[in-house]
Amino acid sequence: MAIIQATDQDFQSVLQNNERVVVKFFADWCGNCRLFSPKFKRMADNEEFAGVAFVDVNAETSPEARKLAGVSNLPFFAVFKNGELVEGAATSKEEYVQEMIRKTV
């Protein structure tokens, strides 16, 4: 599945239109964010996560989305189910992000 690029303007709409959502908050200057991008793409293409919307949000240009997810550091991942935050964490561990996504089942 393609990764959705979202901003403050359409973030709520993405949450409302998708039952299960995982968001990667990043910044252009964040090296770990760039290093995680191929892993995030691989997860988005993983059959196990077929019903999950994968979303990229630039934390620097989307302060409202950042506040809603409680972003504390980058990269930061947040999982939502039915528009409600399930869990959020600053991590660079692919396995941890996968476990977060599984909590939305």
Score class of each variant (00 low, 15 high):
Met1Phe: 02
Met1Thr: 11
Met1Cys: 09
Ala2Gln: 05
Ala2Phe: 00
Ala2Val: 04
Ile3Gly: 08
Gln5Thr: 15
Gln5Leu: 12
Ala6Thr: 02
Thr7Gln: 00
Thr7Ile: 03
Phe11Asn: 00
Gln12Glu: 10
Ser13Phe: 10
Val14Arg: 01
Val14Pro: 02
Leu15Ser: 00
Leu15Ile: 04
Gln16Met: 13
Asn17Phe: 00
Asn18Phe: 04
Glu19His: 05
Val23His: 10
Phe25Asp: 01
Phe25Ile: 10
Asp28Gln: 14
Trp29Ala: 06
Cys30Tyr: 04
Cys30Leu: 08
Gly31Ile: 07
Gly31Met: 13
Gly31Thr: 14
Cys33Trp: 10
Leu35Tyr: 06
Leu35Glu: 14
Phe36Asp: 01
Ser37Leu: 10
Ser37Phe: 06
Pro38Met: 02
Lys39Glu: 11
Phe40His: 07
Asn46His: 14
Glu48Val: 04
Glu48Ile: 06
Ala50Arg: 12
Gly51Ser: 11
Ala53Arg: 02
Phe54Ile: 01
Phe54Ala: 04
Val55His: 07
Val57Asp: 00
Thr61Gly: 03
Thr61Tyr: 07
Thr61Asn: 14
Thr61Glu: 15
Pro63Glu: 04
Pro63Val: 12
Pro63Asn: 06
Arg66Ala: 15
Leu68Phe: 15
Ala69Val: 00
Gly70Lys: 09
Gly70Arg: 12
Val71Ala: 07
Ser72Lys: 14
Asn73Trp: 12
Asn73Cys: 10
Leu74Phe: 04
Leu74Arg: 06
Leu74Gly: 01
Phe76Gln: 02
Phe77Pro: 12
Phe77Trp: 09
Val79Met: 11
Phe80Gly: 13
Lys81His: 06
Gly83Asn: 00
Glu84Val: 05
Leu85His: 02
Leu85Ser: 07
Leu85Gly: 05
Val86Phe: 05
Val86Lys: 15
Gly88Cys: 02
Ala90Trp: 12
Ala90Arg: 10
Thr91Tyr: 13
Thr91Gly: 03
Thr91Phe: 12
Ser92Gln: 14
Ser92Lys: 12
Glu94Leu: 13
Glu94His: 03
Val97Arg: 11
Glu99Tyr: 09
Glu99Ile: 03
Ile101Leu: 06
Ile101Ala: 07
Ile101Tyr: 00
Lys103Glu: 12
Lys103Gln: 15
Thr104Ala: 01
Val105Glu: 13
Val105His: 12
